[in-house]
Design a binder for these strands. Sequence first.
RNA 1: GGCGAGGUAGCUCAGGUGGUUAGAGCGUCGGAUUCAUAACCCGAAGGUCAGGGGUUCAAUUCCCCUCCUCGCUACCA
Length: 720
Amino acid sequence: MKRTLITSALPYANGYLHLGHISGAYLPADMYARFLRISGENVLYVCGSDEHGVAINISAEKEKVSPQTIIDKYHNANKEAFEKFGMSFNIYSRTSLPEHHETAREFFGDALKNGYLIEKEEEQFYDTQANMFLPDRYVEGICPNCGSDKARGDQCDSCGAYYNQTELKNPISIISGKTPVVRKTTHWYYRFDKFQQFLEDYISSNESSWKDNVIQQTRSWLKAGMAERAITRDLSWGVSIDSIDGIDKEKAKGKVIYVWFDAVLGYITATKIWSKANNQNWELWWRDSETDYVAFIGKDNIVFHTIIFPAILKGAGNYILPKNVPANEFLNLEGQKFSKSRNWSIDLKDYFEDFKDGQFVDILRYTLAMNFPETKDSDFTWKDFQARANNELAAIYGNFVNRTLQFLHKSFEGKVPELSDRYKNLFVDWKNLIDNYSSEEVKSKFSEIYGENLLNLILSLHKGIEATSADYRKFKLRDALLDTMNIARASNKYFNDEEPWKSFKSDKDKAALTLNVCCQIVRSLSLLFAPILPFTSEKINDILGYKQTTGFPSDSSDVNYWAEASYPKLPENHFIKQPQILFNRIEDELIQNQISKLGDKTQQEPTPVEESNLISIEDFQKISLKTAKVISAEKMPKSKKLLKLQIQIGNETRQILAGVAEYYQPEYLIGKIIVVVANLKPAKLMGEESNGMMLAASIDGKLCFVSPEKDDIQDNAIVK
RNA sequence: GGCGAGGUAGCUCAGGUGGUUAGAGCGUCGGAUUCAUAACCCGAAGGUCAGGGGUUCAAUUCCCCUCCUCGCUACCA
């Protein structure tokens, strides 16, 4: 039997999930998983928290707690948010579990055995205060190539040069602010270069079914050529490689597996844990050719799932590879990127706090899905959220359900109307019509009895279902939703065209038919909307008194209920409860509140500044400001204003001229920490060279130099 | 800097191996209706498909350049 394994990128347990994450890798996967389950397929949907990596160390240090505290906090918060959001994971696991450490170590050991790991000794910066080796991102210094002082460990942002970390001049640990020392360390490199041909073949074989952006991005990497990459780090937090067979004990000390090797394996661990709990063999999901593996991710994660992970799996041997990697692009918020630091974000947990009523979960799911960044970055706006909720969910779907059930209770005592003799064969004729809808004869015969309106409705329903099914399988989830909503539109049209409020007086049998049909359609819509509106579907099913799946793992089966949505199911005289409003209209005020929360202070109207006076951050970064210690100071001969200063920046001494003689005695300045523009073009003033500029604040004839507020900061600190 | 993606109606987005009238939803305007959450249904208006150049009988679609946005490169979907 065919199985589908579905994964969503493991969220990093160092922050809260926001709407961007949800729209990228989680909601699409959930819709897909629910759709397949409703269609009677065997689905395993796994996810979990990614809980290793240096960023978690750093957060822990910053908050002065253990890494475990950090990951517990975010793992629990994100897990809870997912639950409230209706994610239908079979399991939501985490990579800090012992089972995962085992899995990761096993992969590491196998890679070693299979000759895909290579040991290399190298020199790396070590922060003696923080007691740790410094990954590239955590060292800054002066670029050996262009002299920019914003260069990172292994690459310079301003000139783009690559170099060895140890070539960096004046390196500073961004953790402690101290100068790191160089120490020798051993790391293990994965031989990705051995998989070049294999990966090229793999990508080519999927060319036709994968999204274009995924293929292109992957190709671009392959074109550059695969290289060995280190898969270990010197860190205290992560999966230790201690006492793995074939590894020197001493060398393995303090080494952990690099997160991007470890994180993707979390999918496998989660599967193992789930399988154990459910008495299944996990290998069915990862080693059986009857299993299709689909990995949902955001665009930043593409190569990890199209190159790195496949290479790891191949290196371990006997694993299936992703059959598809339907990566989404990114979601923007009101025209700008999500940014936690600028408070330009909507965290899932905050949304739940502000929108407590259950219907808002589905409203969010719907509005996000209608605007998935499937082919390019898309934009979430609160106005759009309101418009879709009011004009589509409430006005079309909600209204159809409501008008049907209201009418049913007003005119038919809340029971699915009995069909008169003329319409007695409805269920049989309905099915016959679907089975033979290309036959003009069948159609005209059906139309003769039941009317053209019903003919059109059933065809819209059936063709709509086929369209949605195809959409889901092609990962065109926005289209799937649109096609679903179009069925609701057709339903409203049917109700309108039939005018049961009139026929109830003139032709009661016809009105009974119309309402009977509308009840059937409500039941179908409840099923078809379940992947995106699971809570609403549950509510409707309850009102209908008709139990049916919403694609949650617990009500999986091998029946293709999706296809069965084409047919009527509710028997005559079946009692239906009083309707309730499914989606309340969202008022402007609610939306305004949300908009004004964005960006906090920056929300205030920015003071208009002449645009030509504004500089970009890049402009500012061109200026290198540093603290310096004044070693000596003397008056410039024949000058009223200038002092000649010798200053020290780190181990460098240089001379600068400062126009502060009218305000400071030279002796006073000696030993003081000042701020200088370190990369000012040297200039000659009165025959003396000045290599920089001392910063001073002045107003109304007063002047004083700028200095760090505490003596903690001595010379050679970056000012920004 | 290098590589990749994108710039299409007022808004959010589809589409396009070059060929008569470029699509959807929403918004706007008009009509019809009252069972229903001032909802539904019908109809209309709206686009030199970022800008410039080139190839061609023909370009929004192919090529080049420019501008803008984004991702990767560098473990945040």
